[in-house]
Design a binder for these strands. Structure first.
Lengths: 105, 105
DNA sequence: ACCTCAAATCAAAAATTGTTGATATATTGT
DNA sequence: ACAATATATCAACAATTTTTGATTTGAGGT
């Protein structure tokens, strides 16, 4: 379908996986570096890296390099954009439009 | 992972697929019956049915049976729940937590 | 009861996504 | 320059999701 939809899907795809939700839960407690995120949740190093990429691509998480370490944190602007998008996608253009145009009901 | 995450993922899974986003776009214009939704977007009858089930399960869409036809519409309460959930998942418990606890930085 | 049509369900195939281990890149300390 | 460590990337495999066509269910209409 249209690439706009592809782009939108990317934001929510970040939230579709239980492991990514668990990672977000960790990040709610504040910025964390990859080594810490990996440990408690049954993820290999490359597995974590894979999920962090998806989270960063969605805009919901940002990363900050500091020496060898990468630190991840929730992005406020990412969150705001996501909420706006969610509302935009699911809010009727005009409420109460009457019956179905097609089935004449 | 925990079944809470599974449950949360269900809401956003509805928004992860370009075709489902296209369907939601149609529904923004008001209630539509399945026959109408199917037509303009390259979906077989069973394909549409599959996606509508996922959308309904997420709570973002509700269905209304009327004779042979099923009518779908956006759910306001579903939308509000989804926004609340999105915020809950992506908002830090306390902003500004200081450096990373692990890497003493 | 029988026929027709809308939508749901099922099973198999196709496509996409997630996992794993190996390897590459980049930074720090010696 | 070299060794050690953190993370990213890659390619092969596994798991999940989506698509498709066939069949089933259920509501009218005759």
């Amino acid at each position: 379908m249209s690439s706009v939809h592809q782009e939108h899907a990317k934001v929510f795809k970040a939230l579709c996986d239980p492991k990514r939700l668990a990672i977000l839960e960790q990040l709610r407690g504040g910025e964390k570096c990859a080594c810490v995120l990996q440990e408690p949740m049954n993820l290999t190093q490359s597995g974590l890296s894979y999920h962090m990429k998806i989270l960063c691509d969605s805009g919901l998480v940002t990363s900050r390099q500091e020496g060898k370490w990468t630190h991840y944190r929730l992005s406020e602007t990412g969150r705001n954009k996501a909420v706006k998008l969610l509302l935009a996608i699911t809010t009727p253009v005009t409420d109460q439009e009457g019956g179905c145009l097609s089935c004449d009901r």
